[in-house]
Computed example of a mutant assay.
Amino acid sequence: MKPISGVIPAIPTIFKDNMEIDFDGIENCIEFAIKSGAGAIAPMLLGGEFYKLTFNEKIEIINNVSKFRKRIKIFAGVSEPATFAAAKLAEKARDSGVSGIILMPPYYYPYGKLENSIIAKHFIDISNSIDIPVIIQDFGYRSNMPLKLLKTIAANNIAGIKTEGKDSARRIHLLHTNFPDISILGGYLGFDMVNELNNSSDGSITGLAFLDILSGVYEKYRNNDKTYIDDFSKIQELLGFEAENLKFFVQIEKKILYRRKIIIYTNVRSPEPEMPGRMDSKLNMILDKIWI
């Protein structure tokens, strides 16, 4: 049986007005995830602004979210540009009792013969330093990872692969064919989740803002309840809006969570482009349509 399935939200990192972490806000997000039927939670991914956090803040977040480990599975993002730092973070995550880790390739390496061997060693060294499942984030220097590289890495304690991009459904079919014993997860904010499920995904790592609807769609799909089509259609315009404006997706997610009364701060840390007012108006118009 594959170890990872369901809809797994990327938990946002909430910041107060002084840009310190609002741990109460993070906990509110996790409570919402549990209530909404999440298959697990994933703090400190791109949606959690991991690249804007200090190493000590990441340790604090791991300590904070680990208190939920008896209520829900936790897959902590531990991506770092340096193998040593990522391994230390992975070890801390393991010691805190999380279910597993999620790891991106070092994003500054383009794929190539020499670079692929370095990237493979990065994953293998980290996965071999712990004894908990590892999910590969199938994205790196501007593209998906080469299949040969993934095969080299997948032989080392890899439990899942999360893929990205507009062509994720086709990619999921390819990964499912080549890695039948590994959980294959979609992403892309949940925008193409149904198509991904039709191509044999085991679930999806999505945003948090509409997890309740996405989790319901997943369960209905698995139970052959065709009303999932109507449920998914309710949020397709919103997910499309997020997908079209990826550089603002963290801000969009936080604005929706604020409107849903899950968080009280919508701050994002710099560097971050300011979301234009016209986009904010468009977002509110879409949310008004779905009564949020």
Rank of each mutant, 00 (worst) to 15 (best):
I11L: 11
I102S: 08
K121M: 05
G187E: 05
R69V: 10
G48E: 04
P273R: 08
V98I: 15
G207H: 02
I59R: 06
E253R: 01
R171W: 08
E60R: 13
L197D: 04
F139T: 01
I158S: 05
M145D: 00
W291R: 13
G207P: 02
I256H: 06
F15V: 01
I161C: 11
S233N: 14
I256C: 06
P110S: 13
P81R: 07
I102M: 15
D225W: 09
E115C: 11
F50I: 08
F68V: 09
G190N: 10
F32T: 09
Q251G: 04
I11K: 02
D212S: 13
E272T: 12
G203Y: 06
N199I: 06
F84N: 09
I102V: 13
K226E: 14
K261F: 03
S168R: 04
I72Y: 01
Q251R: 05
I135A: 03
F139Q: 05
N56Q: 15
A40T: 07
V78M: 09
N28M: 04
A38R: 04
T13F: 07
T163I: 09
V194H: 01
F55D: 11
R171T: 14
M275Q: 07
G216F: 02
E272H: 14
F191S: 12
E49K: 01
G47E: 06
L239Q: 04
S281L: 14
N245P: 11
F84E: 13
Y107A: 12
R222N: 14
N116A: 04
M19T: 10
E244W: 03
P9I: 03
